[in-house]
């Protein structure tokens, strides 16, 4: 297992390098001018100087290697220095990935936005699991019952209706008509007492539910299929024949065995949920990573967009690896050697 994990980690490096190069090329070969958003009154020679100050006069491979160095050397060193309050080497003149629009390090912007996204994504995943597991278990146990039929229909609807429609629909119902919940996420709100916690809770309900219901729709389908695979196995009949109560047969024996494929699906889905959060954050104006990406794209802030996209790519590769390793750990029949 350890051997396999190490080998996979080793192979992840070239994959990530190729992806980083693809992302870099895609953004770099784009036929637009980073100084295009600046006022027209700037004379051409100043514009040229701005381009040189952004490092655009260098060859493409040099810029790529510099970006890689900033991403993989400067930033981790900076994090280490911050954590342990030490200085490693020449930390004063070390160049970090700079956002063009804000002139601040891209990673500082990302660190600012990260908590909101993690809260929304994390809570939506928890909500999704809490809704999907019972529905999946009951649907499979009572296959073709009305509960199963209704559950399957609802999960198909939840799976088909895009989050940008459920989100807008929720705003119409709960913010416009009923006026229960705020439609815009107040990003300056600090949780200090019970009142502000209540406000925070209220403004998080809709973004979390929109993503959570979407996750639940997908997960419950997997949960049901996985339960059905296990319910007809011999060990279930054996357990029943031994006189174990039905409740423990289903909840201990079958559920535990059905969870292992679901856990891998959970791990594989996390990067997708981060992607889905881009849309949800845009609807509810949550100042998370997705919104940062959209702002970066609209402002042609190439280093910021490169860094963010690459972080999304790292998440995908990482969680694919976690899913494969988890599958081997949870299911002893899987042998990777």
């Amino acid at each position: 297992m350890l051997n396999y994990t190490l080998r996979r980690l080793f192979f992840a490096v070239p994959t990530l390098l190729v992806i980083s190069f693809l992302i870099f090329l895609l953004l770099d070969l784009a036929p637009n001018d980073p100084t295009g958003n600046l006022p027209m009154t700037i004379p051409p020679e100043v514009r040229e100087k701005i381009r040189i100050s952004l490092g655009l006069d260098q060859a493409i491979h040099i810029r790529y290697i510099k970006w890689l160095e900033q991403f993989f050397v400067s930033e981790p060193l900076h994090v280490l220095e911050q954590w342990f309050n030490i200085s490693i080497g020449d930390s004063e003149s070390r160049v970090r990935v700079q956002s063009w629009a804000t002139r601040s390090p891209a990673f500082d912007l990302i660190a600012e936005r990260m908590p909101q996204t993690l809260w929304v994504v994390g809570m939506s995943y928890v909500v999704g699991i809490l809704i999907a597991l019972p529905i999946g278990v009951i649907s499979a146990y009572r296959q073709y019952s009305w509960f199963d039929q209704v559950g399957s229909f609802i999960s198909m609807v939840g799976f088909s209706v895009p989050t940008f429609f459920t989100g807008v629909l929720m705003i119409v119902v709960f913010s416009v008509k009923l006026e229960w919940l705020p439609s815009i996420y107040d990003t300056t709100l600090e949780v200090v007492d019970l009142d502000s916690f209540w406000l925070q809770f209220k403004q998080m309900i809709m973004p979390v539910m929109v993503l959570g219901l979407f996750n639940a729709a997908q997960l419950s389908r997997f949960m049901r299929a996985s339960m059905l695979d296990n319910l007809n196995q011999d060990y279930v009949r054996t357990a029943r024949a031994k006189g174990i109560r039905e409740k423990s047969v289903v909840l201990l024996h079958v559920l535990r065995n059905s969870l292992s494929p679901v856990v891998t699906v959970l791990a594989l889905g996390i990067p997708t949920v981060f992607g889905g959060a881009i849309i949800t954050e845009q609807i509810f104006r949550v100042n998370g990573l997705g919104q940062l990406l959209i702002i970066g794209i609209q402002g042609a802030d190439i280093p910021l967009v490169q860094t963010l996209t690459f972080i999304f790519a790292i998440l995908i590769v990482l969680f694919n690896l976690i899913a494969d390793v988890l599958y081997g750990v949870l299911d002893p029949r899987i042998r990777y050697e």
Binding site: T15, V18, I19, L22, I23, L26, L27, A30, P31, N32, P271, G275, G276, I278, I279, L293, I294, I297, Q298, A300, V305, L308, T309, F312, A313, L315, I316, V317, N320
Partner: peptide, 23 residues
């Protein structure tokens, strides 16, 4: 194929449409 599956698709779609649409 594996490489394409590991690409963050939605961010890339957004980036491509934004950067190349004027051309």
């Amino acid at each position: 194929t594996d490489l394409f599956l590991a690409l963050p698709l939605l961010p890339l779609l957004l980036v491509i449409t934004m950067l190349y649409r004027d051309t």
